[in-house]
Design a protein around this nucleic acid. Structure first.
Lengths: 188, 188
DNA sequence: ACCTTAAAGCAAATACGTTGCTTCAAGTGC
DNA sequence: GCACTTGAAGCAACGTATTTGCTTTAAGGT
């Protein structure tokens, strides 16, 4: 983490962190991401601005932390019975979530307020974990599977590239097409 | 463009734009990107801060414009005699430039101050142009060629993904490997 | 040469970000 | 359980950045 929420695990610091994160969520919904400022968040959270500046450095790093928290997947990928359909389902859901305006905003925030790259690395790690689960499952079924790096290169990277650099005309068919290109489009 | 340098093409506005961009370049070199502020740039450029705020909105959007300008390729990709070697040479150079700290900073700036995605889209368009040149040349040689979209998905996107999300351990071998995966690694 | 009108300059008011110092309370040793 | 240590939060004052209304300049059109 940028300026380490390695807070004392329980107690006042934890309460401050929680209320600041909650304030960011509330205010994003109420006034929009553009209108967020540190003093505004601080007031809502019931802390002084200097507390936020000292713990997070600036608004971008705070938003980056919040974004990573929100990008963490909540559930294991669904088991659809085959590698191909597992990957398709996961990729479609990933693309839907990430390509939505709110998802793109989180990705950008995670990337941008992140001088050392650790938050961005965390995002990639989340995707890699999900993929590893899918691949393990496929190995258990004795399917032939690509390795995780290949899935990142062939499925995740193209989706991310388009989300960030060419946000127009993205739909779930694109996700399926990428998966098909990787596992072969013969069966279904 | 974020706040449109669709300036009156010649005259004072153009001079202001040029001197502001020049000031950014000079000051990046002199004091470093972190220390840039709007008033500092304005003073160096010989304009008032409010001029910059009104034209660009904020420092991030200004830096985003400057970054895109710098990411524009200056020369057509070199002709190495075959599709494979043209792509390899281009991808290696692209990766070297973009993965370097200064290149990553430009990419981040281009993405950052870019609410509507048009600057990011421009970056992708630059890459697409270069690739189109390479593919046209290959067609002229009567080689079989993938289409440009496929090259973006299979070569550009994975490089960008790693640059942004997993910046460690990138080297030109990775670029070659991606090209090999696309055009087949049989000949050379 | 004279209009029209974006865009730049100026200056005042506001808001943001930084910092030294003080106060609070979580975790530690007695 | 009590007091000690220490990291973190509060407070307040300062410097800088940002916003804004109004004025002035000069580019492009007639």
């Amino acid at each position: 983490m940028s300026r380490k929420p390695m807070v004392r695990p329980g107690g006042r610091s934890a309460r401050v962190q929680a209320s600041v994160h909650a304030a960011v969520h509330e205010l994003e919904a109420e006034v929009g991401r553009e209108a967020l400022t540190v003093p505004l968040v601080a007031t809502r959270a019931g802390v002084t601005p200097s507390t936020i500046y000292r713990r997070w450095g600036d608004l971008q790093e705070l938003l980056s932390d919040v974004a990573v928290e929100r990008l963490r997947p909540e559930t294991a990928p669904e088991d659809k019975g085959s590698l191909r359909s597992d990957l398709e389902a996961w990729a479609e859901q990933f693309l839907e979530e990430m390509a939505a305006p709110t998802g793109r905003a989180y990705i950008r925030d995670a990337l941008l307020g992140d001088p050392d790259g650790s938050n961005a690395g965390q995002c990639s790690a989340y995707a890699a974990e999900q993929i590893a689960v899918i691949l393990d499952r496929a190995v258990g079924r004795e399917e032939t599977t690509p390795d995780a790096e290949t899935v990142l290169d062939r499925v995740v990277a193209p989706m991310m590239y388009r989300i960030l650099f060419r946000p127009d005309g993205l739909d779930t068919a694109y996700a399926r097409q990428l998966v098909a290109g990787l596992v072969g489009s013969t069966d279904h």
